[in-house]
């Protein structure tokens, strides 16, 4: 229509377009960044520990986030971490200690039960957290890149907070009932807990990878945990098992954890190093296989989530 209008319009357009030459000169930039190659997944999965380490910031953040969300959200907050093992101890003491009269290595049954339940609760909440980590974070998994192994690791670390609370409760109960903790506990409990962490992470990797693809895994997990608890010497002493079965029991890594934890803290038995060694080997195998399985399924996580 009007020439004038058209002309001005065109001039305005010209001004607003940006030439590619406007980019900053190359020399001003930091040295050329390294490149990442994106290709089809490898035939054999590989675990890149260096990359995992470089994402430790994210891992710690996720740990902190889980703790914060957990305690901000639940009404009972931190008291839940106290109530859970205490209530279980009460129930077990009544059922197994009073009615079934299960022996407890010469210490009050309630202390005995709680000293099994504290490491067990750590294990089961770490395992649950790791197993659900991918499903609970689909928004991250489908929207951003990071080494996926960060996800199951975070809850393993986060569950330590609950452990510390439960441990404090245990110490209070021991003092109240006149059971003195041994000094070697300080030295021996950390490796025993590490064994629990490794086991939880290994099984957690398996569950997490299966969980994102198969819906029924979520429902099967609590059963698995329950069964596992009763097949570990949580509410009964290891000595209750027939003698010839005891060497085989160590193939369950949680036997090493619970027996080791009790021996270290209560000093009722010598440290069962043999059992712990076998348990450690089994736990290591579970971890390696779990991490490799996880890595091999990793490429489909975003597609099926």
């Amino acid at each position: 229509m009007s020439e004038d209008l058209t002309g001005r319009h065109a001039a305005g357009l010209e001004q607003s377009t940006r030439g590619p030459s406007a980019a900053a000169p190359d020399g001003a930039r930091s040295p050329r960044p390294a490149s990442v190659i994106i290709g089809p997944e490898r035939r054999w999965p590989r675990i890149d520990l260096a990359e995992l380490w470089s994402y430790r910031g994210l891992m710690l953040f996720l740990v902190w986030r889980d703790i914060k969300v957990r305690y901000a959200q639940t009404v009972l907050g931190a008291s839940w971490a106290i109530l859970q093992p205490v209530l279980a101890t009460v129930v077990f003491t009544v059922v197994f200690g009073r009615f079934a009269r299960i022996p407890s290595d010469g210490i009050p049954y309630s202390v005995f039960a709680l000293s099994g339940l504290v490491p067990w609760t750590y294990f089961s909440s770490a395992l649950n957290g790791a197993g659900n980590s991918l499903v609970a974070n689909t928004n991250l998994v489908t929207k951003v890149y990071f080494p996926r192994l960060v996800m199951p690791v975070a809850p393993i670390l986060g569950a330590f907070v609950d452990f510390l609370i439960g441990f404090a409760v245990l110490l209070v109960m021991m003092l109240a009932l006149g059971v003195t903790p041994t000094a070697r506990a300080l030295l021996f409990i950390p490796p025993v807990l590490a064994l629990a962490a490794v086991t939880a992470l290994g099984v957690g990797c398996w569950l997490a990878a299966l969980n994102i693809q198969y819906r029924d895994v979520k429902h099967a997990t609590p059963f698995l945990v329950q069964l596992w608890m009763y097949s570990s010497p949580v509410v009964y002493p290891l000595s209750l098992l027939p003698h010839r079965l005891q060497p085989y029991a160590a193939f369950n890594p949680m036997v090493g954890v619970i027996a080791g934890f009790r021996a270290a803290l209560l000093g009722t038995a010598p440290m069962p190093w043999g059992v712990i060694a076998v348990s450690s080997c089994v736990a290591g195998a579970i971890l390696v296989s779990g991490a490799l399985f996880f890595r091999s399924r990793e490429r489909v996580f975003a597609d099926v989530a």
Binding site: R32, P33, A34, S35, V36, I37, I38, G39, P40, E41, V141, T142, K143, V144, Y145, R299, A302, D303
Partner: peptide, 23 residues
């Protein structure tokens, strides 16, 4: 694919530097 959220079926790509994505 470029932000490494999912892996390609075939072919490859190379990206220099850190990728920030808003999907």
């Amino acid at each position: 694919l470029l932000s490494r959220i999912t892996a390609p079926t075939s072919g490859r790509a190379e990206v220099w530097g850190r990728v920030g994505s808003l999907l």
